[in-house]
Design a protein around this nucleic acid. Sequence first.
DNA 1: TGTCCACTGGAACGTACGGCTT
DNA 2: AAGCCGTACGTTCCAGTGGACA
Length: 414
Amino acid sequence: MDDVLESLFNRFINYAGIFKDREVLRHDYLPNQLPHREDQIRHVGEIVAPLLKGCRCSNLFIYGKTGTGKTAVTKYVLRKLILKAEEIGVKINALYINCRFAGTEYRILSQLCEGLGANVPFTGLALSEVFDRFRDTLEFNKTLLLVVLDEIDALVKAKGDNILYELTRINETLTKSRVSIIGISNDLRFKEWLDPRVLSSLSEEELVFRPYNASELKDILAERAKLAFVEGALTEGALSLCAALAAAEHGDARRAIDLLRVAAEIAERKGDSKILEKHIREAEKRIEHDRVAYAVKNLPLHSKLVLHSVYLLARANVNNAITGDIYEVYMELCDEIGITPLTQRRISSIISELDSVGLLNARVVSLGRYGRTKKIRLGINRMVIREVFSNDGRLGSLVNYEPKCLARPPNHRH
DNA sequence: TGTCCACTGGAACGTACGGCTT
DNA sequence: AAGCCGTACGTTCCAGTGGACA
């Protein structure tokens, strides 16, 4: 027994852990090296360089999928730009705003004001008033302002491009200051949402970020791993696998880094001193599981009920349920928890929505004599649904529900 | 060959709500 | 505080339909 404890304690004492610096793997960490983005860095640098001579720079529009380094490159260049400007004594303000977090025009404008040192209440003022204050502060400061609007597509899709129109035109009313804009979009077809006038002025310059391939991702991960992990903690096999998995899925560097971080946490928890391929695979499963569970948990009530109906049918071995079957079960569930069911037309739409996010698989089929409908199966693991709904206060009681309509003989099922 | 099922999916319209505007 | 407007979410209505079956 002494031997067992002795070795256990020794192992604990000698376990160096895996992480040297966790921060390095966070989303908002900005590395000093951005491998395979040298061209983009140079390009953005060339565009903003005129600011250092006191001139306005061209507006720039950057687009590319998530995790291709758009935000990192922009922030990287901005950081260097500000340092250089301070060094040579030129007054430049660079404000970074994430439109998805800011959400509304008002909040974006108030953040801009704040960044310039003007006080604006977080609510209460008319939009036009905030805009006036922004312009006045800008004029008063006599500065060159570079505004970075990240995830600009989220804003425009939700609220329209009005604020962009105002911002692109603001220079016409300024005499002592100048504003340039860098817009960053994840959506490549985002242009279609913009008014032609806004588009032409916003995209004086354009830059597209291609996804990373597996070998590029490998370099990025290796670079990051050097800082994040103790020497030798990441095996070559795990690194390659991690890069390959992320490359297969749109070359998203953020996903790749997430994968690495979760794998490292799994290895750490198990007391392993190395990150192995099996840890990466487990991490992949965990991330996917969490993503699905999160999506299910945040569904609106009726969508949950529809999904749950499909689950109950699947559990009773009805794997190719049709719309009518699902609606029957759904109505029972509504009755069970005492809410009024929606119409079948609406449920048909909800089924299509769930299909488009991948929680269900639905396809339209014709059953000839027996009409035209959709055949529907679950698109995700049954256990995830069970798990999420068990913990759902309102729906928990339905997890083991036996649909009455299943007791009756089915009229026709294929 | 025509019939007819069990829907699909478009369209118009009703209602609630949040946030801007006055 | 009250009106206004856009959006989200539903309802009602209905024309359209692929193909098994008589």
